[in-house]
Design a protein around this nucleic acid. Structure first.
Ligand code: SF4
Ligand code: SF4
Lengths: 161, 161
DNA sequence: ATCAATTAGCACTGAATTAGTGCTACATCC
DNA sequence: GGATGTAGCACTAATTCAGTGCTAATTGAT
């Protein structure tokens, strides 16, 4: 259906929140305390993100999650790949062969749309790779397109806490 | 899952085949005679394409389907939209509100990723709009059985196989 | 030492979407 | 009339997804 899963969205939201907290460990409870998201499910997602090395986790009281890499190096593509596998667009994309691999599609040998679809997929992937966590967070605080001298506009009380 | 449906792929394949036949009416049987696609399902897809004005249909013997518009004016985006609705990426995209519309997502009011996702979706849409049927057919270095003998009188339904 | 908070792991249920099929009616050509 | 082929509708089965339960293991605080 050409749509991300809820899990991916939840993951992205959580990651953005982590960026907001700038390195502090945040618990799943804290996150879904802000965003109305099923806690259980979010925990599951965070766990997957941890498995894939996107975030670090800390158990026990005062535990939680924090980014394991810089917000610049984590892209939407990274998250999607971690949470629902590499974007496919069709069942015959090259990178994803953990499931069926070769004999996935009967049409494959004579398929006239395989390569074009492949090309579109690459474009989509480029889009996603081009959107980093940082760029998800940055344009947010100011709903204005651009401010000259962003330094003055940037409220010092903003990010950290 | 960020993947097109089979129906869309089948639709694209069929459309490409129609371009190959350059205006001639081709039956569903003829198409799935070339591409191993469930005939019944393909018919269903073709029907939808007809409803959306992408192809013209002709009933009866020697009937079939043919493009109702130029191959340049039909894009992958068009087909996707006709067959599975406008690309959404998330449940809160603007164009699609036939189902739930406003109260689709609980997070919506505080969602930090909505706009960025929206932007990515636009990029994807642009990709799809930029890929016309023509460009699907053209870059194919014709080692394909493209014969100009598509015309006129006695073209029995098969023969090449 | 105990307790409370929190992640890790696993498996499961229920809903939604999708793939694919059956059957009948209608249209067209021979 | 008969063969071919689309139109329409409804239905089943498979797959995927969202969300939940329960039980460890870990850590800090009391
Ligand atoms: S081969 Fe053609 S039909 Fe089969 S999955 Fe790839 S694109 Fe879709
Ligand atoms: S609002 Fe945010 S979470 Fe809800 S659907 Fe749109 S993007 Fe996904």
């Amino acid at each position: 259906m050409l749509q991300l899963t809820k899990r991916t969205e939840y993951g992205l939201i959580a990651l953005v929140h982590m960026v907001d907290q700038g390195g502090e460990f945040v618990s799943a409870r804290e996150i879904c305390d802000i965003y109305p998201v099923p806690r259980r499910l979010l925990a599951e997602v965070l766990k997957d993100l941890t498995r894939n090395g996107l975030v670090e986790s800390q158990r026990g009281a005062n535990g939680g999650y924090a980014l394991a890499r810089t917000p610049e190096s984590i892209t939407v593509g990274t998250v999607v790949t971690a949470l629902e596998g590499p974007p496919a667009l069709a069942s015959c994309s090259t990178t994803d062969l953990k499931k069926d691999g070769a004999g996935s599609c009967e049409v494959e040998s004579v398929c006239p749309i395989r390569d074009p679809l492949h090309r579109i997929r690459e474009g989509i992937w480029r889009q996603m790779e081009h959107t980093s966590l940082r760029s998800l967070v940055d344009p947010r605080p100011l709903s204005a397109p651009l401010t000259f001298s962003s330094a003055s506009a940037n409220n010092p009380s903003e990010g950290s806490r």
